[in-house]
Design a protein around this nucleic acid. Structure first.
Length: 675
DNA sequence: ATTAGGG
DNA sequence: CCCTAAT
């Protein structure tokens, strides 16, 4: 047979007679996957819709649609909901700066997440029409929050409000209504809102920013009402800040974005992660399983943030950084990171100190709402009103040929990177920074029955702070019911970041190639590891909770447990020629579709090559062999091997076809075939 | 746990 | 390499 000739099995005489097995290919391709995704999306849509309508209805303050009604609306309504949120953000202003840049002043919470996006887009679109070439864009954001109301209540009270004060012209997510009586009811509805915002993305960051007023032992940051210090973008660490309300205090928390590795590679981070215990699971499968599950969770979370697929797709920039839904997430994230990195040269000249004052709270007012209870009682309730926080300056550089859309995205990325990144919140009471995070508000002198009107908050870079950014351990002001879901979200959020951090610690398993390394030349993974390390291992710095913060709630152990289980993407280990040859030979003997056997035969004891890897490699080999040599990339594979690949592939494909035609027939073995 | 295939 | 449906 021709096939036999091509295979040349007989001549090689190294065949191992093997009964061809009926391939499982009959399983065929499945088509249910998409369906499931859609189902998931539907669920998210539904959730988002319900949550969204809750919010939307607060503005309308009227009919509360039933769940079935929301159901009927489905995705469409979701979109509308977000539009509702965005609309008020329109009134941002943009003015040209004297230094040939643009000054963007924006108000409200639009600095976060999609809000930021939309808000900024609004601005830049107007601006950009007149100015298509933006070489150096200086964005002066005065956005963030205006008059955010932060109320703290004792545990079991869900009474915390984050609404904007309407009369101050702030544009918030919801308006608690002017009537004071309405507030109590608003409070109840605040819970789903907060949760929704968290799931929605970065919007919750604001909450945390102004809910949290703890700063762990850092020297007071510079506070000036007119700070124009430049803002070096925190490198890669993009965190999602979530609010954590706790009994005695609120903590600003920032989570790292997993960013599947900010560079597409899994390189160990040089940062120290005390929490992490190097744990190479000897069992590769366990590892993979864990990794898979973690990723799944993380991905689900991402989608959770953007509940509606439509919303994602509806973003102005298709397939761009904002589209975190879907499977290209990791790739997308990498792009985002790269982009941010590029733009990051901004503010280089201005940022020389590690700790940069990012923003400041200006005009912060502190008002107390007593409850006719003594300060000593646990049942006090403090409300803070932050009039505004501002981001001093951003410097953005974009090429002339960049599109407006990319400009918008850039601005958004920059803002997000700052806001989500290692921001730390400092609390200054009458000019004096409160450094003890463990102090309660009362202990710090923030009491509902006191007259305080001089409390300031500072936002600084947290990236390089020694103690890092705290985790969401202490949920002081919320009842247990609320705490739970919030905490969970938080933990999931830290998956991304953690992945990187953990991976960085992932010890490279000792390379124990036996059968193969003895026979062929096999690359040394140690080299790869080190080379991987060099790239940008510091792109993301793992964040550890401050020791003093550990153990406040059961949340913490939960996070840590998950954390320790998180496994990162395996490091890339290109197949050496020797490995390829071993694989080819094994497949020639065993056929395609018996990857477990192939693994046993040729890659046994090479733990980092799973049968799935071998299958994948074979797939790529077949592809490589079928393309022209100049199209091939990577280490060249000897043509001889590629020829064998094609031969074996053709042969075994034929065998499989025969087996399917004649299930009872025995496939002839290659060497039996006459030459 | 394996296999097959899409990403 | 990852992810996952289907075995």
């Amino acid at each position: 047979m021709v096939v036999c000739k091509r295979l040349g099995y007989g001549s090689r005489g190294r065949r191992i007679p093997t009964m061809p097995r009926v391939p499982n290919s009959a399983r065929g391709k499945r088509s249910t996957r998409r369906k499931k995704d859609e189902d998931d999306m539907y669920a998210f849509d539904l959730l988002a819709t319900v949550a969204g309508t809750l919010i939307a209805d607060q503005d309308n303050s009227s009919n509360v649609p039933s769940i079935s009604a929301a159901k009927a609306k489905k995705r469409k309504s979701v979109k509308e909901v977000h539009l509702d949120e965005i609309l008020p953000l329109k009134n941002v202003t943009m003015e040209k700066d004297c230094c040939s840049g643009c000054v963007v002043g924006s108000g409200g919470v639009c600095a976060f997440g999609r809000h930021a996006n939309n808000c900024l887009i609004e601005n830049s679109s107007k601006r950009s029409k007149a100015e298509s070439v933006l070489e150096s864009l200086t964005v002066k954001s005065n956005m963030v929050i205006r008059n955010s109301l932060v109320s703290c209540t004792r545990p079991c009270e869900t009474n915390f409000g984050l609404g904007m004060i309407p009369e101050c012209g702030a544009y918030g997510i919801h308006h608690p209504g002017s009537s004071s009586s309405a507030e109590a009811e608003q409070v109840q509805q605040a819970e789903p809102k907060v949760i929704r915002r968290q799931a929605d993305g970065h919007v919750a960051a604001l909450d945390s920013l102004f809910d949290s007023m703890d700063q762990d032992g850092k020297p007071p940051a510079l506070v000036s009402s007119d700070s124009s210090s430049c803002v070096p973008l925190c490198s890669h660490g993009k965190e999602h800040q979530t609010s954590s309300l706790c009994q005695a205090k609120v903590q600003y928390t920032a989570d790292r974005d997993d960013d599947e590795n900010s560079s597409g590679c899994t390189r160990p981070s040089t940062t120290e992660n005390k929490d992490y215990k190097p744990q190479y699971l000897g069992n590769h499968r366990i590892r993979k399983l864990l990794a898979s599950k973690v990723r799944k969770a993380a991905r689900n979370k991402i989608c959770g943030r953007f509940p509606s697929k439509k919303i994602c797709e509806g973003m102005p920039n298709k397939g761009s950084k904002l589209n975190l839904c879907g499977k290209k997430m990791s790739t997308t994230r990498q792009k985002v990171q790269r982009t941010i990195f590029k733009k990051k040269r901004l503010a280089h000249h201005t940022s020389s100190s590690g700790k940069e004052m990012l923003t400041e709270a200006s005009g912060t007012s502190f008002s107390m709402e007593g409850r006719n209870k003594p300060c000593e009682s646990e049942d006090y309730h403090v409300k803070l009103r932050i009039k505004s926080l501002s981001i001093p300056e951003l410097f953005i550089e974009v090429p002339e040929n960049a599109t407006i859309g990319s400009l918008k995205r850039t601005v958004m990325d920059v803002v997000n990177s700052i806001m989500e990144g290692g921001l730390r919140v400092g609390v200054l009471l009458q000019g004096k920074e409160i450094q003890d995070d463990n102090k309660t508000l009362r202990q710090a002198g923030i009491c509902h029955d006191k007259k305080l009107n001089n409390i300031d908050f500072t936002l600084e870079r947290g990236q390089e702070s020694p103690s890092g950014i705290t985790l969401p351990e202490q949920m002081d002001f919320l009842s247990a019911d609320i705490v739970e879901p919030l905490a969970r979200m938080k933990c999931e959020e830290s998956f991304f970041e953690t992945e990187v951090g953990d991976d960085s610690q992932q010890p490279i398993p000792a390379y124990r190639s036996r059968s193969l390394s003895d026979l062929y030349s096999v690359h040394c993974p140690v080299e790869m590891a080190s080379q991987d390390t060099s790239a940008n291992s510091q792109a993301i710095v793992p964040i550890e909770p401050a020791p003093s913060d550990v153990g406040a709630l059961a949340i913490v152990p939960l996070c840590k447990t998950k954390r320790s289980e998180i496994v990162q993407r395996r490091i890339r280990r290109p197949f050496s020629v020797g490995e390829v040859e071993a694989l080819v030979e094994a497949v020639e003997q065993l056929g395609t579709g018996r990857w477990r056997a192939v693994k046993m035969l040729a890659f046994d004891h090479i733990e980092h090559r799973t049968y799935v890897d071998l299958k994948d490699k074979w797939k790529t080999l077949v592809h490589t062999a079928s393309i022209s040599p100049h199209q091939r990339r990577g280490a060249p594979v000897p043509q001889e091997l590629l020829d064998r690949v094609l031969s074996a592939q053709a042969y075994w494909s034929q065998q499989q076809a025969k087996l399917q035609d004649k299930p009872d027939g025995k496939a002839p073995l290659p060497e039996i075939c006459p030459p």
